[in-house]
């Protein structure tokens, strides 16, 4: 499992280069990716459902990304986009196509629904975390 996280780290670091992340932040992005995959695997290991595991991983990555963005004064996609990469549904999408090609239509539908659900869960986790960070804690209410 640790080896899997190391490979996720490697892969995401490489993707960071393709996304033109600045040199200093490439290892940070890679770590986010490795962490994301680690959380996902841990959740699955302790009996969380597939969707739950995706949601927990995405939410923790979104949270860390927002904090890092404020600490390092960078736009938050810099950390979030690489971090969430390992759980973007490439796997379900492929098996959806594969099963369609071999004629297993019921199974293919299941995988496609899975892909859509996981995408929506990632979006939902950003919703939740961003909503918290968008609250203006310091200012007084605006007069209309």
């Amino acid at each position: 499992m640790i080896l899997q996280c190391v490979f996720a780290f490697l892969a995401v670091s490489a993707f960071c280069l393709l996304f033109e992340v600045p040199k200093k932040l490439v290892p940070v992005g890679g770590l986010m990716g490795g962490l994301c995959w680690g959380i996902y695997l841990l959740c699955l290991k302790y009996g969380v459902s597939l969707y739950g595991a995706n949601f927990i991983a995405a939410t923790s990555i979104a949270l860390i990304a927002e904090i890092l963005a404020r600490v390092l004064k960078q736009p938050s996609p810099m950390f979030f986009v690489p971090g969430v990469l390992p759980i973007v549904p490439g796997y379900s999408l492929y098996y959806g196509v594969y099963n369609f090609a071999v004629g297993e239509h019921a199974l293919s539908k299941e995988y496609f629904i899975k892909a859509v659900m996981i995408s929506m869960l990632i979006a939902l986790s950003i919703f939740a975390v961003n909503a918290v960070f968008r609250v203006n804690w310091h200012t007084k209410p605006r007069k209309n």
């Binding site: 080896l3 899997q4 490979f7 996720a8 780290f9 490697l10 892969a11 995401v12 670091s13 490489a14 993707f15 393709l18 995959w37 390992p86 490439g90």
Partner: peptide, 11 residues
Amino acid sequence: SMIGVMGFTYT
């Protein structure tokens, strides 16, 4: 892109 694909293939 080589390393990226390789890493995700392993995971």
